[in-house]
Design a protein around this nucleic acid. Structure first.
Lengths: 127, 127
DNA sequence: CAGTATCCATCCAGATACTG
DNA sequence: CAGTATCTGGATGGATACTG
């Protein structure tokens, strides 16, 4: 029966897939990974300045989560004032191809999606 | 200056990328797209039964959003009781390769991520 | 069958202020 | 410089009951 077979995706979703996509889906992770992927290594305040619209708190949370997942590494230089540098780990780098494919898809198809959204909301208004 | 150059990602993020990834990031969209991608066409209650843990409300919301984005199409058969069928549009199908790359990455690297998370939380406890 | 409508708990992101 | 701590409004997701 086809429906029973399809349930495998639900299981997948619970364990590894949704776990990973929670990161992909949150507001800042992809941006941070993309930027680190291109820049190589950046300090906390450099990331903060590049993104501009992120709060210190969210940048801290995002970096900690990505570090916990093993996607970025955090290097502390014992200085005053402190210097902390962030870099993608090999695991983080291995995510770049999949992410850029998604980003490319988004860039390419955003016009179509936008047009569809407008068409849809106009239809709703007419009802 | 390298930092100014990197800001392009922030702009990208605001407009098309984050818009699309909001869908990827929500709780059910990827699952629905994946299932429809394999099944071809399904009715509302078939999807409901396959996923099992989704509420009617969230399935409705998810399907409406995907329809508004032009990723799935909704076909109503004027019967009593009603019959509504959902299918991926070509736009929705074009998203499948990027998504499956991401899903594959998740499956392959989940063990590493899990190990990293445990190591990280153990470190925290020792402090 | 395929939804709507309503209420509710929780999470999330941002603003602000403070610190080793 | 690189964070932490606290508070708050709003969005998100789920449970339940009802309906054309």
């Amino acid at each position: 029966m086809i429906k029973e077979n399809l349930k495998k995706y639900v299981v997948l979703e619970d364990c590894p897939v949704r776990n990973v996509l929670d990161r992909v889906g949150d507001k800042w992770s992809i941006l941070v990974i993309t930027i680190l992927g291109e820049a190589g290594t950046l300090r906390f305040n450099e990331l903060n300045a590049i993104i501009g619209t992120i709060s210190q708190k969210m940048l801290t949370v995002t970096l900690k989560t990505l570090e916990a997942d093993g996607l970025i590494s955090r290097k502390i230089y014992p200085q005053v004032p402190p210097r902390v540098e962030y870099t993608l780990t090999p695991l983080g780098e291995s995510l770049l191809p999949a992410m850029s494919l998604l980003v490319d898809w988004a860039l390419e198809n955003m016009p179509a999606i936008k047009a569809s959204r407008e068409k849809y909301s106009n239809q709703k208004e007419l009802v």
